[in-house]
Design a protein around this nucleic acid. Structure first.
Lengths: 177, 177
DNA sequence: AGATACATGTAAAATGTTACATGATTTT
DNA sequence: AAAATCATGTAACATTTTACATGTATCT
C-alpha cells in the first residue's frame, strides 16, 4: 500500500498528528500523492496496530489535544525494505484523455472548453510549483543533500505540469479551426 | 465512473466482445486508461442493466461464441452528457515520486537503480508510442478529422513519456555523484 | 504434447471516495 | 455572530486488484 509509505516518509521527515499530516497532503507530499483526512486516520490506525508507528498524546492549551505519531524501528525497516522493491513503470491514467478521444461522439464545443480549462488548471499548478521552488530553492546549484530529494520531486511536478500545458496547447491548435 | 465512459468511447468506435475490449485496453485505449478483463466484464454487466449497451450473441466456428456489445441511443446520450461535464484538473499520483522523496530514509543504491529502471521503462514506452505514430500517422499534417482525436491522445502519451525520461535523467545527474 | 490465443465469468480483499458526526478556539 | 482553523473519527459506497474457475481451438 502506497499511502502507508507516503505517511512513513512524511513522518520520518517530522513526526505529526493526523491533522498535520492531512495538511501536508494538501501541500508538499500531496503534489504527487493525494489523501484525505478520513483515509489518513484509517491508515494511521492500521499502522499503529502493525507497530510501524506509535502515538503520543500531546496536551495543548487553547487548542484540542493531539495525537503525535512517531515512526518506530520497525517502521524504518519497512520503509527501507520498500525502497528496495522495484517500482513498476508508471502509466498515465487520465479521464481527460478518454474525453479527448471521445471528441467525435460528444459535444465538441464543450470538450474544447474543457481543454482550455484543463490548460488553465495546469498553468495555475505550474505557477504554484514555480513560486514554491523560487522561495525554497532560490539557488538550485546550492540545494543541500537533505533537501535534494524534495527539490527533485518538485522539479518532476514542474516538468509534468509544463508537459500538460504544452499538450493542451497542441490540442487547441489542432482542434480549434 | 470513468471505465464506463472509456468503454462507451471504445464501443462507439467499434462494437466488440468483452474479450476484444480487454485486448484494446492492452493497446490503444489502455495507453491512458488501464482495465483488466475482470473489471470489464463486471462493468459491461452493469452497463447492460442500465441499458447503455445491448449485446448480441455471435456464433463462431472454430472458436467459442462471443457476446458483441453495441452502444444504444441511451448510451450515446450518456456519452454526450459526460463530455459536457467539466473534468477536474488532473493530478500526478506517483509511487515512484514518493520513493524518490524517501531517498534519505531508504537504500540509496537501490533507489538509484530503480530510477534507471524507471527511465528504461519510460524509454521503451516512448519508443512503442513513436513506432505506433510512425506506422499509423506517417504524415501528421494529413491526419483525417476522424483519426485526429486518437492521434492527439497518442501525442499526449509521447509527451508524457518524454517528460518522464527527462526527469529520470535529471534525477540521475543530480544524485549519481 | 504443451503453449498460446480465444472466450467469459465469480469472489474476496484492498483501496479510495463521499457523506456523516462532533466539538473547541481563533479570526474577521 | 459567522467563518475559518484545529482536531479526530465512523460508515457507506465505489473502485481496483488479485485469485479462482472453466473450456475450446490453434499453433509449434
Amino acid at each position: 500500500m502506497a499511502l502507508e509509505h507516503a505517511i512513513l516518509v512524511s513522518l520520518s521527515e517530522q513526526s505529526a498528528s493526523g491533522y498535520e499530516l492531512a495538511r501536508r497532503f494538501d501541500r508538499s507530499i500531496g503534489f504527487f500523492w493525494q489523501a484525505t483526512h478520513q483515509q489518513i486516520y484509517k491508515v494511521l490506525g492500521r499502522m499503529e496496530s502493525d507497530k510501524l508507528i506509535v502515538s503520543e498524546l500531546v496536551e495543548q492549551h487553547g487548542r484540542p489535544d493531539k495525537k503525535v505519531h512517531v515512526v518506530t524501528a520497525e517502521g524504518r525497516d519497512e520503509l527501507a525494505r520498500w525502497t528496495r522493491e522495484p517500482t513498476p513503470t508508471e502509466r498515465l491514467r487520465s479521464d481527460f484523455a478518454v474525453k479527448v478521444r471521445g471528441l467525435g461522439f460528444g459535444d465538441r464545443a464543450a470538450v474544447l472548453q474543457d481543454i482550455a480549462r484543463q490548460r488553465d488548471g495546469h498553468r495555475a499548478q505550474l505557477e504554484h510549483y514555480r513560486a514554491n521552488a523560487a522561495k525554497n530553492y532560490p539557488d538550485p546549484e546550492a540545494v543541500s543533500e537533505t533537501d535534494l530529494p524534495a527539490y527533485l520531486v518538485l522539479r518532476g511536478g514542474i516538468r509534468f505540469e509544463q508537459s500538460q500545458v504544452d499538450w493542451c496547447q497542441e490540442l487547441l491548435a489542432a482542434l480549434e479551426v
